[in-house]
Each structure stands twice: as C-alpha cells, then as structure tokens.
Amino acid sequence: MSPIISASGVGKTFRQLKRQSGFGGAIRSLFSRDYSEIRAVDGVSFAIEPGEAVDYLGPNGAGKSTMIKMITGILTPSAGSLSVLGREPHANRMVNAREIGVVFGQRSQLWWDLPVRDSYDLNRHIYDIPEARFADNLAFLTAMLDMAPYLDRPVRQLSLGQRMRAEIALALLHDPKILFLDEPTIGLDVVAKDAVRRFLSEVNKQRGTTIILTTHDLVDIEEICPRLIMVDDGKLLFDGELKRLRATLGSRRRLILEFATDPGPLALATATLAADEGATKHFLLENETVSLLDVLGELGRGHGLKDVKLEEPDIEEVIRTFYQNKPKLAAAL
C-alpha cells in the first residue's frame, strides 16, 4: 500500500513585517521592508498509511497547526513536498476538500444561530451527499456521539463538549477518507475528552478512516493513537509507537515513601530523589532491574516508614523526560 499522506522535507517559513514600538515606530513600519522570518515547520518528513491513527504532538508554537493547514491545502509549503491521496494539496484544493474532513478546536464550522441539524443539511448540499447515505451517516453519528437530545437546538445554546461532538460529526458526514483534528479536546473537561477520544478510536477502527490529531495535551495520547509524531520548534523529534518511545527512554518508575515523621535528607544509590515534601519523598528508580526490595534493603530499618507506593511511569513523565533529554536523544535517534 502506498501512503495516504507523505511529507518529505516539508518546511514553512513565515515572513513577518518587523513592527517597531510606539507611534513613531508604527509609522516607520508602514514604509519598512524589514522582515523577520519564523520557521514554523522545518524539514519534516513522514509517511502515513491508510487507516492509521496518528497523534501529532508538540508544545504550543511547535508548528502543529501550520502542518495541518499545509496538509489540508490551505497553506503552501515553502520547502519540500507534500502528497495527500496522491495529490499536492494546495494545488487541488477543491478536489481535496471533498475527501477530507477537518475539525479546528478553536474555530466553529457550525452555523451559530441555527439548530445543529441545519448545519448538517447545508453540508449535504456543499458535498452533494446522496440522501440515503446522508440519513445513514447522520443516524450513526447521532447515536455514537449521543447527540439526539440537542440535534434541534441552536448551536449557540450548546455546551463546549456538545459543540465539539457536533463539529466532529459535521466533519464526518461526507465520508472523508482522512479526518484532521487540530486540538479537538482543547477546553473540554475530562468526561467530554474521554467521549471524544473513544469515539475517534471507534471511527478509526470501524470505518477505517485515517485520523491525524494534533494536541499539546499529553493525556490525549494513549487512548486514540498508537503512533506518535512529536515535533518541537518546527522539527520532527520522534516518529513511532508510544511503546518504543517508552522503551527508548527507559521507564523510570516512581517510588513514593511516606514516613511517620520527616527522616531528614536521604540519598540512595538505586533511586534518585525527585521530590521532597518532608515526611513524603518521591524517588525515581534508576532502571528496569531495580526492584522494590533493593531500594527498601538499601534504605534499611529505623526510618519510621509508614507506607510505600510504586507507580508505573505515566505518559506525562515519559514525555517530560523526553523533552528534557531532547538534545541527547536527537543525536541518538
């Protein structure tokens, strides 16, 4: 199978007129041709196969939205080449638009004053969706996203979580081959995030829709997408499965020791102190082979140990370590 999306050495440099401060500066910048360059995306390459679900992860300003805009054809790359469904996206905007669905977490595509259903009906016209297909899809999406209670309510009356579900349904009505979501869970509470995540994973598995999702929210990851593309500062940092990322980094389990009273400073060879709250101390175990017994053995008796907790590294931990070790890893990968 050939990739459904392939990026090779894609870059985007924005030119921005240098603005000077103050009134005089504002006047001067009217005549100035002084530009500063922002490298939002810098030599990124990857290939995505049909049916994959990929997380495009990175901190704010990493260039995620810029990448999504280029893949969806509303921004031209300034370097490298992009191919989506075998076409160059920005040169084939109209054709491309029929085969993709896009959700922007921070932009609504629903008609604000109209019932949700009316926006769907408008999309039926925009995409020429056959009547029967439309009815089927609407029924499926309404049931899966639990939208029946508010399908006839005006969009402006919906909660953020309801609206986001409605946006996702809107993007799926015309059976797109690829669904792009730019920060779809931004601002949602845990329950709403969970509903969105479970639904996306379902669509990916049941319908085979390729899904690309950007997020800066680490909690989003594990649930939907086994594959992770990490970017920072416009550059690709990691592309692979989350498991591999964990393995590459080595999992540092967290050991929490609770004492009856503060035992004072403690130093161990088998674990590093991560946080010291007096009577409660957090240690990170050095490696896979260190066991709880080793640490407790080293610690010995007589510290008034009350409770012991051992936690598997959560994804935040993994990714935090990752960003901290970025320079080292970039050299190794």
Partner: peptide, 12 residues
C-alpha cells in the same frame, strides 16, 4: 480572525 480559512476547506 482567519475564520475565512474554514470556508477554504470546503469545496465551494
């Protein structure tokens, strides 16, 4: 606000 780009994403 750039919302106009959402219309560029549609075949219209």
């Amino acid at each position: 606000t750039g919302d106009v780009t959402t219309f560029l994403l549609k075949p219209l």
